[in-house]
Structure formats: structure tokens, C-alpha cells
Design a protein around this nucleic acid. Structure first.
Lengths: 361, 361
DNA sequence: TTGTAAGCGTTATCAA
DNA sequence: TTGATAACGCTTACAA
């Protein structure tokens, strides 16, 4: 590897002159600059990363810690962050904690497990002297990932920082649930079942409360017996289907696409036609949602927007002078309802239970 | 950040002694060692990464360059590589070239575009002084990513190195096509249509040749008119379906799951029942393959195995003393046929097209 | 406008 | 068994 010294030698100037030129100092003659840059170009010189890092305070590197790269939500977020950083001439370095891969579902309530991977990861990045750290969670929780006196900018994405000192960027689950509620009601549905995620999950709770808000606004009674809690897996959708159907619901809101697939399984088995005999809405807009039949109406999580927004906030903190101990906000990125074919408009439809609408009039 | 110097001071020993202890040298008294380690523990000392890198030859960092992290195949491979590296106490650093994201399909025949991103990426890793580089391609091609005189170990994954000096790890597409051919024939199919990928694509060509080999072994004639070339997208499957069906095929081999979904679209529209009136096989084993109905028989690409194998080979090169200019091999990881419900056994079956080719008139 | 020289936090060599 | 001391490649006062 070619060094500053060699460049200097080739150009018959001193090391510092070369260094100055490379660092954009202006106190250099045009001629020397030209010559040096030419040699730099030719030799393909690249500064030694470590030598530079040892002296400089800023590395223009942003660390990204992800809980698990294997989750469907993580890669798009990371991709977007990387893209924005690159546009602003920042490098990124990714640490994949592989938490689900290691321990499935048993880590996020086990602070010790969690920290046994998180702490070394943070230290690692700190010792690389990254300028800031973006933490990308696998699902929305309240997360303690940075100490309150963290000296570099930190931000938590797809999760909420336990400390108000760090910005959080999350999806707007409440609005998501609300939009779905509003939509289903607008399509004439009043008796709506819900196959929710885990009961103690933030996504679940917020989507539910948004949904309830929609009901309230439309003056539709909320029947808690119509919500069933699953575990986000396909089988949940299948399992909860039967009893929910028996309740006579005209529509079912599944809190993710995978459970909707499970629900489809059941309905298919029983010969109940989705989009005709019953309406279904999912959440996530995974690839499967547009491949199953009928194509699933679902709420798209704008993962790239989340990534972009997070990166922008990080960059802003980096470019402006950063004040560690300030209170920061929670940014909510809205979801986008993707209307496909799984919801039927039953307004003015007398063959189903939609008749009680007259009362709304 | 606490430094060696401070530790030394706290322990009343010299810097070199501390350094020696930390680096596992044995020429230290037990007592000093204990004391130093204790202080190190207490202070939470972590060596300065850069200072270390500037002196050491090895960094125990492996660079991973991916063509695009957004591809379904990339993340699992990367995850597996990271896992193996971590087990062996290596760090990884990931560079995402985002080639598809940037330029869709227009980059892999454009050496200039390609190199405008690849070269800086490699330089970047080199200046970080990674011990080796794993290149993860987005699809199988012959790739020139490392110069022949590359000084550190390199390996190309999911693609084939143009130079024999670098190991390549790919999926066994030929065997994959062969297995599918054999399977379909064993199920009684003789007139089999193919919705292939792009005609000049290595996956396409190898899968096709494997398929042909199966036909040959079973003494079934190969009819080239029954293979249609698509572009791997869902729409291809749909578009090619009609004319292929008209040929009276009893089974169709789609070279990826997505095109199989497109084919399903067409068949669904026409009321042709998959797994009954016609048989379909896919490739990839994406999530969609087990969500569509009937569940798609497909060939699983063992992405984690590919990642593991690649990482192991890299580690082996790293641990043994590495000889740059040696000829290396192409490792083929087999796929795994996942049998689901989309193929019907028509052996001794007189009700379907197995013989009604006559009626194709 | 250019060059000298003092660090940065390590590791490595070699003498004590 | 320990400790000076010289690198490593770079940045940055400061001197010329």
C-alpha cells in the first residue's frame, strides 16, 4: 500500500504538503496541488484508515446495529440508510446481532441476554470511533440501547428509546389501525373480527387502539370478544379463524400478512370466499400479500421512508454541532393502505349482517 | 477513552508489559498479570482500534461486498457468513453496492458502471486492512471482481470468479434442473413445458441442461419449443402460460417461484386447477411458494449453507498461510427439492393430457 | 508557500 | 521478567 511518504517523495515535496492538499487546505500553490493530485490519482493512493482514525476525531462512519438482519423489515431500512449516508459521503458499518437467529423469541424480555450482545456491539463501534449509531430494532418495543450520557449521536429505529434523549423513528401503528378501521367501516362492515399479534406487543396495542378510535368516530360499538391474540405466525391466523367466523363477523383485520395467509388457509378449506363471503385485511404488504388469491388488501409499512428519515436525522445531528443531553422526539412514519381485492363493499347489501347500518343514519 | 498508558500507570508497570499481557505473551509474572488484568477489567479498557490496526498486520476483520442487500438471496447468505465468522472470533464489515437499487438490470453487462462502484468498495476494504474479502453476487455470472494479483484471500459467492485463482461457491443449478426433470418424469410427466429465466443467464442455462440430462436418461424426447424464456418476473409466468398450455403440456417447470405465481394467475383465471389439471414446479422456495394454493413444489436454494461454506473456506485460507497465486475450485451447493402439492402423479392416468396429445390437433 | 517535528495509541525489538 | 524505544502513517502546530 502506497503511503503519504511515498507520494511526497515522488513529488519532491514534504509529507505535510501532501497531507494539506489532501485535506483541502488552501495554503498551497496551484502547481504543487496539481502535481500532487495527479500522482495521487495515478498511484491510486488511499489514506491509511487507521493512521487517519488515530488522529482524527471524526471518521465519517456511521454505525448501524440491527437486531436481526433476517427480518423482512430490517433489510429495506438498512438499505435506505446506507443509500442516504452514501449520498452524503458517509460510510456505514453494519453489525448484525442476529438476536432472533440466536434465541428466537426469548431475548427481548431478558435484559441479560440482550446486553450480552448489545454491549460488545456498541463498544466495537465506539472503538472504531463511528460518528454516530443507528439502532434498528426488529419490532416496536421500548428499548434501552444507549446510556443516557452517550457521547455520540444515537437514534433508534423501528423501536422506541426508553430515554427521551434519543430520537426514535417508528411506524404510525395507531394511524395504521385507524385507517383500516375507517376503511372497513366505509365498506359497510360493522362486525369486524381482529386477529391481533401478541397481546403485550406495542404494534398490537397501538393498531388496536387506532382501530377502536375509528369505531368510536363512526359510532360503532367495539366488541372485545371479537379480538383474538395470535403470535404473528401463519398458524395463528388459521387457529383463530374458526371461532371468529362463528361470531358472524363480515370482515377480519389480521395484524400481519402472514396471519392473513393462515386465515385464507382456513377459509379456503371451508370454501368461504375471501372478498365475497368475508373480507380480510392484512398488515405489512409483504410479497405474499399480492400473490395469494384474492390479492390481500393490506397496510404497507414504508420501510425505505423509515430508513431515509432516520438517516437524515442522524446526518443532521452530525452536521450541526451535537448537543448530547437534549430531549428528542418520536417520529412516526405513516403506513399506506394498499387496496386490493380482499375486501367487499357490503353497503346496501342485504344478504349479510350489514343491515344494522340503518341505525347509523 | 482509557489507554494502555493509563493502565500501565495505574499498575506501576510499563506500557509494554501491559501490552504483552493483553496479547497473551507468557513471559510475565503471574502476579503482574493478575493485577493488570484486574485493572483492565475495572476500567473497561478497550484497545484503540486504529492504533492497533496501524501496527498489526492482521485485523481479524473480513470484508463482505454484496451486489445488493435487497435481493432475497443475499441476506441469508450474509447472515450465515456473519454467524460463522463470529464463531471464529472474526468481525465482518459489510459493503452494500446497491447495484440493482441504483441501476436495475443495466449494470452487469456494463463493466464501467460496475467498476465505478466495485473498485472504491474494494479500496475501502483494503484501506481498512480487512484480512479477506467475500464477494456476494446477486445472481450467477462470471465475475471479475478481484485482480489476479490480489494480495489477500478473496472468494466469490453466488457467482463464478472469472479467474481460477479465486474459489467460487455457487448453487448446483444443473443438478437442480436435473432433479426437477427426474421428479416430474417419475410422476408420469413426459410433455413438460419450461418457463425459463433470461436466455443468457447462467442459472437458466444450467438448469435447462440439467433438465435435459434427466430427459435423456429417461429417454424422453426434448422439445425445444416447450421452453419459453422470461425475465424472472411474475408477469413472465403469466405471459408465457397461454401458448404453453396450448401445446398440451402436463407439467410446467418455472425457473423461479415468482414466475410460477404468474403462471398460477393465468391458470386461476382460466379455471385450470394446479396439481390436478396441470402440474407446476418452481424454484427458490421463497415464502410465497408455501402460501399460494396449492402449495408449490419447488427447489430450495440452501442459502445459509452457501454462506456457511463460503465463510469456512475464507477462514481456512486465513488460518493456513495463504498462497496468493494458486488455482482454486468451484464449490457447488446442491438445492433441495421441496415437494408440496402442485405436482400430480399421472402415472397410469388416462383422464389427463398424458395421452391426449393426439387431441391437440 | 513549504517543511519540520511532535504527537496519536499501539506493537515489536532488544537491552537491562 | 520487565521496560526503553523505535516504528506504524497520518494530522497539525509552528517554524522557515
Amino acid at each position: 500500500m502506497i503511503t503519504l511518504k511515498e507520494i511526497a517523495h515522488l513529488c519532491n515535496v514534504s509529507i505535510s504538503t501532501v497531507s494539506n492538499i489532501l485535506n483541502g487546505k488552501t495554503n498551497v500553490s496551484e502547481e504543487t496541488r496539481r502535481k500532487v493530485l495527479e500522482v495521487v490519482q495515478q498511484t491510486g493512493y488511499k489514506p491509511n484508515y487507521f493512521a487517519q482514525g488515530i488522529r482524527k476525531q471524526k471518521t465519517r462512519i456511521i454505525g448501524i446495529i440491527v437486531e436481526d438482519l433476517g427480518l423482512f423489515s430490517t433489510t429495506p431500512i438498512v438499505g435506505a440508510i446506507m443509500a442516504v449516508c452514501e449520498d452524503h459521503n458517509y460510510r456505514t458499518i453494519l453489525i448484525n446481532m442476529r438476536l432472533y437467529d440466536r434465541w428466537q423469541d426469548t431475548w427481548y424480555n431478558d435484559e441479560q441476554k440482550f446486553n450480552s450482545v448489545l454491549q460488545p456491539s456498541i463498544k466495537e463501534l465506539l472503538s472504531i470511533k463511528v460518528d454516530g449509531i443507528v439502532y434498528v430494532a426488529g419490532h416496536c418495543r421500548i428499548i434501552k440501547c444507549f446510556p443516557d450520557d452517550f457521547k455520540i449521536p444515537g437514534i433508534v429505529v423501528y423501536g422506541i428509546s426508553n430515554s427521551p434523549k434519543f430520537t426514535s423513528v417508528v411506524i404510525d401503528d395507531k394511524k395504521g389501525g385507524y385507517d383500516i378501521g375507517k376503511y372497513l367501516i366505509s365498506m359497510g362492515h360493522r362486525k369486524i373480527g381482529i386477529i391481533a399479534g401478541a397481546a403485550d406487543n406495542l404494534h398490537t396495542m397501538k393498531r388496536l387502539s387506532g382501530f377502536q378510535k375509528a369505531l368510536f368516530e363512526e359510532q360503532v360499538l367495539f366488541n372485545p370478544d371479537l379480538v383474538r391474540y395470535g403470535d404473528w405466525m401463519r398458524s395463528s391466523g388459521y387457529i383463530e379463524a374458526e371461532s371468529l367466523i362463528k361470531e358472524g363477523v363480515t370482515a377480519i383485520f389480521c395484524m400481519n400478512d402472514l396471519m392473513a395467509v393462515g386465515l385464507y388457509d382456513y377459509l379456503y378449506e371451508k370454501g368461504i370466499m375471501v372478498g365475497k363471503d368475508i373480507s380480510v385485511v392484512g398488515y405489512d404488504n409483504k410479497e405474499i400479500s399480492e400473490c395469494i388469491k384474492p390479492a390481500l388488501t393490506t397496510n404497507k409499512i414504508q420501510l425505505d421512508k423509515i430508513g431515509q428519515e432516520s438517516a437524515k436525522i442522524m446526518l443532521k445531528m452530525l452536521e450541526q454541532d451535537y448537543v448530547p443531553n437534549r430531549s428528542r422526539e418520536i417520529i412516526k412514519i405513516p403506513c399506506k393502505l394498499i387496496i386490493r381485492e380482499s375486501v367487499r363493499n357490503i353497503n346496501g347489501d342485504f344478504t349479510t349482517g350489514a343491515r344494522d347500518m340503518e341505525s347509523t343514519d
